[in-house]
Design a protein around this nucleic acid. Structure first.
Lengths: 181, 181
DNA sequence: CAGTTAGGTCAGCCATGTTGACATATTTCG
DNA sequence: CGAAATATGTCAACATGGCTGACCTAACTG
């Protein structure tokens, strides 16, 4: 690790005076570390999911429904940024196999609000546990403000357009979960 | 942002006394922000690649070959963690269309060392520029030590087994690039 | 009542991952 | 030297999870 941090930190040409990042040297390390980190971040869940006959797409649906019980299909589509046909395929499997249920909306009966079953929650929490263990291990290795630093970094990486929506989603899910527990 | 950071920071139960992260509350925010950040991190490149008739798989190959000219096919497979059949498909297209060339190894004539052409470097740098602009913008919004903090966070997310190899790769590529420029 | 909205579905296509088997050239080693 | 290991390529078949386009029902809204 020491091998890398020293040269890369000293190596970095100051960004000042470079317009729009157009001519500047690429920030290779972060670009590549994002690839490697994300790659390793999803492999453990993938392995577990494979035993259930599920894939990464199922994981995403299950995760967000578990986090936001009663969410609308349209909200989920907006988060995942996929078509309803793609969602429909995996959602149908999750429903058929008893991981997710859909309930008619109370106000708007066109809506099919999404909820995880006990079985679904169990799997969602198992997968979240794997990823949490990895993140917790990383944050523990770093300083006490690492969580805050990581969050801020990741947030600013998100498209400014989506940013507020993402933060609202997370805040809302946190609130709801706090009330239930 | 303030809406999120305050509750999430105060909300976090201390990890002490929880064995193996098994029973602890998942670290929802980082898990989800990684998803959203990565999702947005790849969309711009994806859009550019689509105009060339390429996909994300081509991007990865082009990126790593550009970063490490003369790398062996086996090294690339190890980085991407895909099968040689999967690699072969996209690599063939990149070679056929003049973005990558393969040269016989000087020492070991079985090797087909990989190099980008001028055309390939141009596209690779264009894509790296997009991602760099995003990262640079994020780091500029945060403090001066944000780059270091982000790097350390991402590194510790990587599997400990791969970690050294990844860091060696990045350091080697940095050295090589420094010599060329 | 007409139009919009929420959601579902069928059919087909594409990109990119997989396994398994096999081929060829080259290097390495007993 | 010759056998085995290595680096790479390739064929065939399959799975996952994106996509487009077309079309449907039920329910809400003005």
């Amino acid at each position: 690790m020491a091998d890398l941090t020293a040269p890369a930190a000293s190596d970095h040409k100051p960004a000042s005076g470079e317009r729009a990042g157009r001519t500047s040297e690429p920030i290779w390390d972060i670009i590549e570390l994002l690839f490697f980190a994300y790659r390793d971040f999803v492999t453990e869940p993938d392995d577990v999911l494979a035993k259930f006959g599920f894939g990464r797409a199922h994981h995403r649906v299950l995760h967000f429904v578990n986090r936001n019980p009663g969410m609308k299909v349209a909200e989920l589509l907006d988060i995942l940024k996929i078509t309803k046909q793609s969602l429909g395929r995996v959602l149908k499997q999750l429903v058929d196999q008893g991981y997710v249920v859909q309930k008619e909306g109370a106000n708007d009966r066109r809506q099919r609000l999404l909820y995880v079953t006990a079985k679904g929650e169990s799997l969602a929490m198992k997968l979240a546990g794997l990823q949490t263990a990895r993140v917790a291990h990383a944050l523990a290795e770093l300083g006490p403000n690492a969580h805050e630093a990581a969050r801020r970094f990741l947030v600013t990486l998100i498209d400014p357009d989506n940013r507020d929506g993402v933060l609202r989603f997370i805040a809302r899910a946190d609130r709801a979960r706090r009330q239930r527990s």
